[in-house]
């Protein structure tokens, strides 16, 4: 059984069909790419999967269970977590605290133990803090753990978002343009990080990205969207040579 299945997933906003009958299946352990020109409906796809929007028709199955229309916080608890295209960090909080918000999802002690500040809550806080610190090490941000997240550089903020999403311990990690605004060096490092997340942390990754070297070098399977419709899917080599994809998105080699 595949981890995530989109079956004819469709959403319309009034007369606009933003995502039209999209089908794809992601297996556990995949590094899956979602590409297409601007306005193709990639981020809307993410919003459908993470419960921001409810599909107008069609199904979204996670581990065989329909999840269309489940609120975002419950989706996160089921094991899907995401980063955002326009960075959405908790600016006034430190990097460590940002990651701890992600880890908070697995808290076991009640609010009363926290309000009375008794050992169970204190121990849990300490445990989640250590866990968050380890995740900061994964994305090389351990040195700025106590800095305000808003003060970080753009590339670091993107990596912090990944660490925050990782802290929810998702089975499926959705990355929305993780390399946007990064220089080539940072992109190469990020590719390494994403690969490590898949290999060492056993996550399944679905990512949206415009940088073709990044996507083609990293993903094993790619789906191409255009105007809300799926125009191609397959391994990078097949996508690179697909005439429809070249016409809609990649363009001819000069």
């Amino acid at each position: 059984m595949s981890l995530l299945t989109l079956k004819d997933a469709t959403i319309r906003f009034g007369g606009l069909v933003a995502v039209n009958k999209v089908n794809f299946e992601i297996e556990t352990g995949d590094l899956f790419g979602l590409i297409g020109p601007n306005g193709a409906g990639k981020t809307t796809c993410f919003n459908l999967i993470t419960g921001v929007y409810t599909p107008t028709s069609g199904h979204i199955l996670f581990n065989g269970r329909p999840i269309g229309g489940t609120p975002p916080n419950k989706i996160a608890k089921l094991g899907i977590c995401r980063t955002f295209q326009n960075i959405r960090l908790f600016g006034a909080l430190s990097c460590l605290e940002n990651v701890m918000v992600g880890a908070y999802l697995r808290h076991r002690t009640g609010l009363w133990t926290a309000l009375s500040d008794i050992p169970p809550a204190i121990k849990e806080t300490r445990a989640l803090k250590e866990e968050a610190m380890r995740l900061l090490e994964v994305v090389n941000l351990e040195d700025v753990a106590n800095a305000r997240s808003a003060d970080l550089s753009y590339g670091s903020q993107r990596r912090l978002e990944i660490a925050r999403a990782m802290a929810t311990q998702p089975k499926l990690l959705l990355l929305d343009e993780p390399a946007a605004g990064m220089n080539p060096q940072e992109k190469a490092e990020l590719m390494e990080t994403v690969r490590r997340i898949r290999d060492d942390h056993q996550k399944t990754v679905l990512l949206i990205e415009h940088d073709m070297r990044f996507v083609m070098g990293l993903c094993e399977k790619i789906v191409v969207l255009d105007h809300g419709e799926e125009i191609a899917s397959g391994p990078p080599d097949a996508i690179r040579n697909d005439p429809k994809v070249i016409a809609a998105y990649l363009g001819e080699a000069v």
């Binding site: 993470t50 921001v52 609120p71 975002p72 916080n73 996160a76 608890k77 977590c81 995401r82 955002f84 959405r88 960090l89 908790f90 600016g91 006034a92 909080l93 918000v101 992600g102 908070y104 999802l105 925050r164 999403a165 802290a167 929810t168």
Partner: peptide
Amino acid sequence: EDEIASSAMGV
């Protein structure tokens, strides 16, 4: 700080 990001993190 951010309601949308909070709910995406399971809050």
